[in-house]
Design a protein around this nucleic acid. Structure first.
Lengths: 133, 133
DNA sequence: TATCAAAGGATAAAATTTATCTTTAAAATA
DNA sequence: TATTTTAAAGATAAATTTTATCCTTTGATA
């Protein structure tokens, strides 16, 4: 189990028990929706407010401690910020998995055929996971 | 100006004036948020209900006549369904543009390094458009 | 043109997210 | 370590977004 105290502070976030628990939950589960995160946090803090979840998720996003993953036809999930990567989503069970793919060639291609100055690429691949196949 | 009557019917959607106007608006503007679409439709139908917008957007999505485009740090926009393509988003003005890039190589790579059966790829590139540069 | 299922409008209700206010606690400092 | 300060937590109201309901109107088919 990692202690996220320093990591939170590096992002200008006070290391409260609630934030440490959110960090742990995201580390363990990888990706979580607001709803699922709240349910889980209730087990640890029986009087945690849903507002605390929202306030923390928003602040943690502003401070780049976590990131939102928007998924086609599903609710957003959140993950700890790591090195750039893409996502695999199972259309059957909703499971989200990280996958590291080099998108530089894609970005270069887009730069050539458009007049945009491109700096980020966001890729979500959909399919069926091993379990659901 | 295209007449979307037949196109709507092909998707099992009655060709009402409201739906024809929504289709036209999406054709002309490319991508629109619920909010912007509603504002625009109000100009044409001064008593159109917001519920009509939502009901139509949802039904049109279910029938694959339109598609939602989820954008990082912004509200979703909707577009008429066309052949598969990716999107460019301007971080400055929010403008969304279509871009066609072959993602087969990316999908193949993902298949090799994961146990998923992948069938779709959703790519959103972020940057700064010509106008905002 | 008559019929019928579906869509529109108005609006209530539900769901989601944000704001406010008071209490509590983390962090900095003496 | 005690004190002070600032921010976060909890409770809850408010705002926003989305869906449901109900009645009226209309598009599609015969």
């Amino acid at each position: 189990m990692i202690n996220y105290t320093d990591e939170l502070r590096k992002h200008n976030l006070k290391a409260t028990p609630q934030r440490l628990a959110i960090s742990d939950a995201l580390y363990i589960n990888g990706h979580m929706s607001i709803e699922v995160l709240y349910e889980l946090m209730l087990k640890k803090f029986n009087s945690i407010s849903l507002a605390t979840i929202y306030k923390n998720i928003n602040l943690m996003m502003e401070n780049s401690f976590i990131q939102e993953v928007k998924i086609p036809n599903a609710k957003s999930v959140y993950e700890l910020t790591k090195t750039a990567h893409s996502h695999l989503v199972c259309d059957s069970c909703g499971e989200v998995e990280d996958v590291t793919i080099d998108l530089d060639a894609i970005i270069d291609e887009a730069k050539q055929i458009s007049s945009f100055k491109i700096d980020k690429a966001n890729l979500v691949l959909s399919g069926v996971c091993k379990n659901c196949q």
